[in-house]
């Protein structure tokens, strides 16, 4: 679906992205990860035909982004980092305008608008002026405009930016619904926000790709099976010693130390949660929490960005 080879983009003398290469298959949901200023937005803008590359080659569904951008623009739906909304329009009017602009026939516009509004939970806002919408609803309208014409490729730049926790969950659910129907590229600098929705990740740092693959592949490449967070009730020093004694544990870091216990972050090879719990219980410690999955990707990301 997407083939990127040696993609480079300069702003004046500054290279925002340098020599990026990756491939994306049809139907995949790809997460673009990187700290602010890493080059995610520039990459997505090139894929969205908003910017042209300084050098390199981008081919989307067989069309070159420089020479055949008009063809590519028929295939994509793009949500930039700021939703491109006309405040004076109503939600329905705006979505109808975008649908027509992207080639939906006049006869199909109403049905497509309705469908996009249903998927994004905007049906009740159909006649509301965009200027009267909250940030969360504006973001939803941004997603709706990107998908209203049923594009093959959806490019969503920071779709969860500025949303409250409930809205983030809603947005994740929405993106999950889009799986299979579209190829989706979604960027974020907050890993937990996209950790559960992506098939693969491309990690960008300083304008270059520092890693790409599934969560497991990234973890394997780093020689780590992730981080385990433990909350233990009992004497901290003894608890740390017990944890360190478990085979596979590489490093133990104290996250929080209270009067009645300690929270530890354990870097280990392989999934050693059963061994850790067994060892701690045998030593009469109360294990209040064992958490692995939620912090795993974050650990990989931090390691990658710190290394680079």
């Amino acid at each position: 679906m997407i083939h990127v080879e040696g993609l480079t983009k300069y702003y004046g003398d500054h290279a925002a992205i340098r020599d990026l290469s990756f491939d994306i298959k049809q139907g995949e949901v790809i997460g673009f990860l990187g700290l602010n200023g890493a080059g995610k937005t520039t990459t997505l803008k090139v894929l969205g035909c908003v910017l042209l590359p300084t050098s390199g080659r981008v081919v989307i569904d067989g069309h070159d982004v420089v020479n055949e951008s008009h063809e590519i623009r028929k295939l994509i739906g793009f949500l930039p980092d700021t939703p491109p909304l006309y405040d004076e329009m109503t939600v329905g009017g705006y979505l109808a305008f975008v649908a027509q602009l992207r080639g939906v026939s006049a006869a199909d516009v109403a049905a497509r608008v309705r469908e996009a509004e249903e998927k994004t939970g905007l049906v009740e806002m159909h006649g509301t002026p965009i200027s009267a919408l909250s940030h969360g609803y504006r973001q939803r309208v941004g997603v709706a405009q990107a998908m209203v014409h049923k594009p093959k490729l959806l490019i969503l730049d920071e779709p969860t930016s500025g949303l409250d926790p409930a809205q983030i969950v809603e947005m994740r659910t929405l993106i999950n619904k889009l799986k299979g129907e579209h190829t989706v590229l979604v960027s974020s600098h907050i890993l937990s926000e996209i950790a559960q929705i992506c098939d693969r990740y491309v990690v960008i740092q300083g304008g270059e790709i520092v890693a790409q693959g599934t969560e497991e592949e990234l973890s394997k490449d780093l020689g780590s099976q992730g981080v385990i967070e433990l909350e233990i009730r009992g004497t901290a020093g003894a608890a740390i010693e017990t944890v360190k004694s478990v085979a596979g544990v590489k490093d133990v870091e104290v996250v929080r130390l209270d009067d009645d216990g300690v929270v530890l972050r354990v870097d280990a090879e392989g999934d050693v949660r059963p061994e850790l719990v067994r060892a701690l219980v045998e030593e009469d410690f109360d294990v209040m929490k064992v958490d692995k999955a939620t912090s795993k990707l974050e650990a990989i990301f931090l390691k990658l960005t710190q290394e680079n």
């Binding site: 803008k45 035909c49 908003v50 623009r73 939703p83 491109p84 909304l85 975008v98 992207r102």
Partner: peptide, 14 residues
């Protein structure tokens, strides 16, 4: 200023 030019740029219009 509002970022809506990206909408026109990413749509199939010349």
């Amino acid at each position: 200023q509002t970022g809506t030019l990206a909408l026109l740029y990413s749509s199939p219009v010349s």
